[in-house]
Nucleic acid binder design. Sequence first.
DNA 1: CTAACTGCAAATTCTTTGCATTAGT
DNA 2: ACTAATGCAAAGAATTTGCAGTTAG
Lengths: 150, 150
Amino acid sequence: MKCGPPWLRTKFVSAGYRWTLPRQVILDVLQKSSGHLSAEDIYFAVHKRYPAIGLTTVYRTLDLLVQMGLVFKFDFGDGRARYESIKKGKGQKHHHHLICTGCGRVIDYTDFIDEEIELLNLTEKELSKKYNFKILNHIIQFYGLCDKCK
Amino acid sequence: MKCGPPWLRTKFVSAGYRWTLPRQVILDVLQKSSGHLSAEDIYFAVHKRYPAIGLTTVYRTLDLLVQMGLVFKFDFGDGRARYESIKKGKGQKHHHHLICTGCGRVIDYTDFIDEEIELLNLTEKELSKKYNFKILNHIIQFYGLCDKCK
DNA sequence: CTAACTGCAAATTCTTTGCATTAGT
DNA sequence: ACTAATGCAAAGAATTTGCAGTTAG
């Protein structure tokens, strides 16, 4: 892990933020991981490489990254926030979630059916127009019972 | 507020639960309110009518109602859970959410719901089959910036 | 040099738990 | 009567804040 792509550094500096080691490492962890990490997950991964980086910094950095639009924060309803890089590394795709309310298992799926994509396009377009809203992301989660729990 | 519809009482009793005052009041508050209440909101509303009912009971009752499939729990990412009755009172419709990540404003929308619902049904059917999952509910949230924040 | 950033410890906030009491059935 | 349900106070877990020391620009 060096310094990441130059445009990232520029993005930070030109916004008046500093391109610090913790920020580089946290972004790197997020981009390399396979999604929905909790703050603690990120802290462990980061801490393994740089034990001097503390949990507080992880939280503060994540807030900043979310605010800058580089990272997306969401929630499965288990009382802890999850974070995911918006720019995915190779092999990572946008996905939706199937969440078992019985055992808490989360299934990611990326094989959206045509109807689902159509749904999203239609809705995003209509909503943007009607509410003058710039839509950046969405969460689609289906809740139910998995094969073991039902 | 009396005792609610008789089928509700039956549902509780036949599952081995008791049809208690706090449960009646909490369900009533949820059905009459316009959606996404936090536990504290519910506590205040309930407490106004029956000051003897405590916050702990509100949490425990909400867990039960969620588990019984009468209430849905979700999260806007602000660190507190929200609850909504699945059976809506008159004037209330199923809706999805548009959330501004800038100011935290939440817009409910019920427009385009018909098309969305149809596409959702297809999606749910496919997913159920593919993952052998019994889908009970869904969350659809669009995140972005509202007119003031963008 | 100086303002942004950091780590630590303490504080907050939301939610859950232990336990003695109350109340449906 | 029997046991689920309740309220209170205390505990727990996730996240935030105050502050003094550190570091990028």
